[in-house]
Nucleic acid binder design. Structure first.
Lengths: 336, 336
DNA sequence: TTGTAAGCGTTATCAA
DNA sequence: TTGATAACGCTTACAA
């Protein structure tokens, strides 16, 4: 803070009232007489006063800030439109509130820095997105401040009774697979996401369910990593092992894009030879030709809902449920 | 801060020293006896003490935080790999320091919120990336705390004598255009970026320079907006007006991608019929087929350098120059 | 409805 | 080298 910055004290002096009164006006307390409110507000405007955040935080024990933890490589975080939507949803929920969002992408800030940040009272709560099986330290971090997870943290972190928002991954995968069968496809493979992430395992489970229910072979599985390149590689692998494949359920759109390129290079027509379904309905799906049939998950709603749940927590209210599961929808375009 | 959180006071009591001494140890002051340092550190570990950030900020008048202002739509910010690289560079420079980065994407946080954030002492300085001609309020914001711009703020904001880092946009555009001419192309068009951004005007200027120097027609100009769709549209426009065009310099890779699609749809072979050069050398360039010839700008270096300059400023040192210009390189791939 | 005064957890200035 | 003690700018009982 540059010297000369106006303080509560100075506003109080200018308005001819006490510091406490100015504080009340600033915080919208109802028990201040209209004339005083007016005088104070005039002084605030005249001095161009803005409350000092650190002082406020210290006195009120509230930072009015929320951290978004992304235990992911920064390039990955930016490359996947899915994250963009989640962040968008979060900021939309936060916008009308006084809370600000602080993004902590793990590769950028080392974990001990993150820990100090949370433990140092910089934020009142945290949102975790994209956690992996190995992220043991997230368990510790999520104990420091109230935390809401994006995606079930039970599967990969063994964290029970946590607050989380998830999409119906299993249901979405089931719907996609069922659609492929309905299309008459029988030799259906899948490209999974990074298997240390719950979304990957859940989507694989959904595919497998339907395949075995239908009495079809459920072993045409190739593992990707949720990136475009990973998807292309996995598709190549799958094609090598199962050249007669006639449909593929790919665990996200980015990988589906990669798969599309591989299929094209291999001379397979989509959807004539091989039908393809992705997951996310992100920009990656709409921005490709042929248009990708995919499972829509409302990533922005997910972000919104996570923030909403955390705000409940911070307000001292117990959310109705510790878990919110969002629906998915199959969006038919050209690839299946 | 949850009640029960250990404070300096408690550490002092546990170590049998004064508060001041603990503070010295925490801040690595050299004039503390080794034994005392030891005792204090033991107490810190035992209590799991982490200094309270707000208290520190209040007392030291330093937030140890930097804001990254992005006056851009959030979707746009995430969609362009260029920003990812800039952020990466910034975080890399910040990583070994005690500073943390707070991202403020403008559509998410309304400006008055941003203003309060800066004026409230939440951060010690700011980095501005992707500013537009209309962003008058940035002028005000950049007066609140020490600020370093990414890109020359003179052109669009009329801000003189500011600190900024820029890439040699004119030089890059010149090199690209010269290369096209060297290739034997003569009817060379350009797709510009959003003309309210300095990078767009500078790149257009570079193209125009070379074209007129070579005595070629420099009127085949179509305006895009730096997005993939915008590039596709602009290319369509250009093609309609100048069907005989044999090369295009596109002001960024994302638009070049869009242009590539348009050209394909129009039955033009790239580079046989129309040669294409982009700008950025981002993921968007390498991740496309045919490989995009482009002008490489080191976006991560740009971020790194901006952060570096700001740190100088915050350390109270006057940077050697108020301006750092980074070089560009032409990267030859398949499209030209 | 308003004011007084005691913190909030640090840093920083003096003395010792 | 260490310790008191006064800020830092605000919130919040408690009085008035």
């Amino acid at each position: 803070m540059t010297p000369g910055t106006p303080t509560l004290e100075m506003v109080a002096a200018a308005a001819g009232v006490s510091r406490a009164t100015v504080s009340r006006v600033v915080n919208g307390s109802p028990k201040v007489s209209p004339q005083v409110v007016d005088a104070v507000n005039r002084a605030i405007v005249a001095l161009n006063y803005v409350p000092n955040r650190a002082a406020r935080t210290l006195a009120s024990r509230q930072a009015m800030a929320i951290a978004l933890l992304v235990p992911e490589d920064i390039g990955r975080f930016y490359a996947d439109p899915y994250f963009a939507s989640v962040v968008k949803g979060i900021t939309e929920r936060l916008e009308p509130t006084d809370y600000v969002l602080n993004l902590l992408v793990s590769s950028s800030d080392p974990r001990h820095k993150t820990r100090r940040y949370l433990a140092g009272g910089s934020v009142d709560g945290a949102l975790v997105v994209s956690h992996h099986a190995g992220d043991r330290d997230l368990i510790e971090l999520s104990d420091i401040v109230p935390t809401v997870f994006g995606g079930d943290p039970t599967t990969m972190l063994g964290l029970r009774d946590r607050f989380y928002v998830d999409v119906d991954n299993v249901g979405g995968a089931r719907a996609a697979t069922r659609h492929l069968i309905r299309l008459g496809r029988r030799r259906i493979g899948t490209v999974t996401g990074a298997m240390d992430m719950h979304a990957a395992t859940h989507r694989l489970a959904g595919w497998r369910d339907v395949m075995s229910e239908a009495g079809l072979d459920d072993t045409a599985v190739a593992h990707g990593d949720f990136t475009s390149y990973g998807g292309a590689d996995a598709m190549r692998d799958l094609l090598a092992r199962r050249p007669d494949i006639d449909a593929v359920f790919v665990a996200n759109d980015l990988m589906a894009r990669g798969a599309l390129i591989t299929l094209g290079a291999a001379g397979r027509r989509v959807p004539e030879d091989v039908a393809l379904i992705g997951f996310d309905d992100s920009f990656a799906a709409t921005n490709v030709s042929p248009g990708l049939t995919t499972v829509r998950q409302a990533a922005d709603t997910m972000g919104w809902s996570m923030a909403d749940m955390l705000l409940e927590l911070l307000a001292g209210r117990e959310p109705e449920t510790r878990t919110r599961i969002l629906p998915t929808t199959l969006v038919l375009r050209e690839t299946a």
